[in-house]
Amino acid sequence: MAVRVALIGAGKMGISHLSILGANSNVEVVGVCDTSKLVLGALQKYTQFPCYTNHSKMLDQAKPDAVVIAVPTKFHYDFVKDALSRNIHVFAEKPFCLHPEQSAELTALAESKNLVNQVGYHNKFVGTFQEVKRLVKEGHIGEVQHFEGEAYGPVVIKKKADTWRSDPSEGGGCLMDYASHVIDLINDILSPVKEAHGTILKTIYSSQVDDAVYSLLKLESGASGLLSVNWSDETYRKMSTSMTILGSKGKIISDANELKVFFKDQKCPQGYSKGWNVKYVTDLAGQVDFYLRGEEYSSQMDYFINTVTGESPNTINNFKSAWITDKAIATIKKSAKNQY
């Protein structure tokens, strides 16, 4: 039987999720909720999806098994809680919550009710980053000494009218919106962030939020590393996220497309040899049934649906992992003494 799914928030990410859900034969979309007349009008006129302007009303009337929540971050806490309290499985967009205490509460609530919980850190479903995690966790590059986590892209490249993304109290800014992806990868592949030093939250074009984040991190494992993220860099065509990891037995340089691994000696995993190895996402990405913008967006939604039907464990991108990332974001923010 198809999983009954509803969507709250049909913005850029929400619409993309909705299209992927709409194409999934294991899913029945039972409701879409948004407050934009423009978007809701288009959905009403051109799709079969039942439309709502009030999310509580939708949850009560449409009675979904699962809900995808893609609203501005400041609403995540309330909306996720509304869904969990009705015993509905939840997929929420990233970052999870504005405050780690809220993330902790929701994590406990979802676990106590035994509900499926997932957050949209889609890089975890990118083939290259999955392989990086495997190489690190299986110890193939030895003890991790240092890393660099980077992301650059052309999101804010001139002064513009303000939206929620330019309001720090609503979850805007490069640290929350953009750097969170990199921080989440660091937490997951290496170890949770323990301390942040010398953090610079730099304003470039925005008036109230950071457009770049630079910070020296110390992880619980003892490894040190550099976080360098800038969403006002127009030399990039789109977001480019990368990880460089230096270990006692080798080194990894990876982005979402290309994985380069250097092994110091012959003792390396199958498919690799001493010296430099290059692998591409074409070798590592799994097949999806419907493609929109990247395999990882379909894969993460398939994973969510499969978890709801009991076919996958709720281990990748669960609330708990997103809570750890929210804690790291708070740690980094706290260490930024000055705005530059």
């Binding site: 913005g11 850029k12 619409i15 934009s36 423009l38 978007v39 892209g153 052309p154 999101v155 804010v156 513009k160 009218a161 939206t163 993304r165 919106d177 065509r237 789109k238």
Partner: peptide
């Protein structure tokens, strides 16, 4: 597409249109 996608992150759907 990237022209619109980048603008959407910044301006939202209505703002981009």
């Amino acid at each position: 597409a990237h022209k619109y996608a980048n603008a959407m992150t910044d301006l939202g759907i209505a703002g981009t249109i």
